[in-house]
Design a protein around this nucleic acid. Sequence first.
DNA 1: CAGATTATTATGTATGCACATAAATATATT
DNA 2: AATATATTTATGTGCATACATAATAATCTG
Lengths: 233, 233
Amino acid sequence: MNAPSFRNWKSVQDEVLRRIHAREWKPGELIPNEADLAEEFGCARSTVNRALRSLAESGLLDRRRKAGTRVAAQPVAKATLDIAVIRHEVEGRGSKYGYQLLTRELTVPPARVCGAMQTPASDALLHVRALHLADDAPYAVEDRWINIGVVPQAHDEDFATISANEWLLKYAPYTHGEIAFSAVQVAEDDADILGVAPQSAVFAIDRLTWDKDASVTKVRLLFTPGYQLRTSL
Amino acid sequence: MNAPSFRNWKSVQDEVLRRIHAREWKPGELIPNEADLAEEFGCARSTVNRALRSLAESGLLDRRRKAGTRVAAQPVAKATLDIAVIRHEVEGRGSKYGYQLLTRELTVPPARVCGAMQTPASDALLHVRALHLADDAPYAVEDRWINIGVVPQAHDEDFATISANEWLLKYAPYTHGEIAFSAVQVAEDDADILGVAPQSAVFAIDRLTWDKDASVTKVRLLFTPGYQLRTSL
DNA sequence: CAGATTATTATGTATGCACATAAATATATT
DNA sequence: AATATATTTATGTGCATACATAATAATCTG
């Protein structure tokens, strides 16, 4: 048997994956180092590095300097979710997108909100509520607070035709944020808006974004029953 | 002003991020090519490539050969969720993990299940139901179907002390899979098990994994109310 | 002028080399 | 023996160069 050649990083990755699946390299086990693999595969060490690094990023390998590379014992499945603008999400399903502004007012938020956003309790924030529709049926309600101290342009935008969801992406970049998914029993007013029975189980996405150390916006999206967030592993 | 030097890919990435945030490079706009940036930053093109590639992977840049690199017009927020073994998830929160097998039987599954798993309608699958506990309180119910044609060892495992959730990760590798998150109203039997009111809104994770073209397992996890799946952006 | 062909160009990747860095191990010092 | 120091080693990164590839732009051809 002459050495098969794995000349590009993807084929190296495939071979490594094959060995893991075939249990030639078992979970928790140390695999050969980059230099040895490079020699075996007949390629440069940097090519092996590229392949292994990529597998480590997806959680299948654990790498530590000096300690070496081992197959993850408990591979944490990393599911990458694409959180798109709702309009795109709806249109991507082949439905007609609709948008309807419900309320827009500048008010002092409840403690829960200014606590999370770390704004002074006395500061007014822009509160926008809107409904997203798919094929003229309710799709999701958006309840959003915008820090006008950070995004003053929001003050001049009425959000009548463009959703805050979309507007902010265009005009208010963020450096980092948090996102949480949960199931909630929908309150009466939201149930009315979505046209579902009160106490229905709806999917909720809560997002809070920051521009450096200042909060930009906090939003809760409630989706009509049946909504699924899906991705592949 | 002399040229600041960005000698490593992370500092190049930071500078690119800064320009995007400062809107020196606006959404949808074409940015200079790698060679020019390398010259400006005083580093090798490969260093710039590393920085830009990584930003493209996280969805902030769109890159196409010959066409060049542009700032994503609608940056799709890519949220990476770590789906860990439930025991680790519970222990990671500092709670005591508990496990309880409910049922384990070899039966012919309903059409819904063998349809999704693409197994012959007459084939029996291993059906395991179990309860995961955190600090002795119900945490999640697991309802799982295992393709014993693909994982014959499961036949000899009683799942009395180790959850299928954990056992499978160790003994049944998969090549790919699908995962879906949703909110459901809990059925009466599951409500009993979780110790919650019937019709409560609970968070559901449905996962289906494959080893090449054969389904390995299909599972639904229902979490007690209050459960949140969270990550940072 | 439409359609096929050929250049051009920006990203994508492979290579060999060098050095940086973290972490484990061995060695020296009190 | 406990602690500090040095050595070793595997991964991490940077660089210069070369060539591959995809997509656009330019050119040719009937």
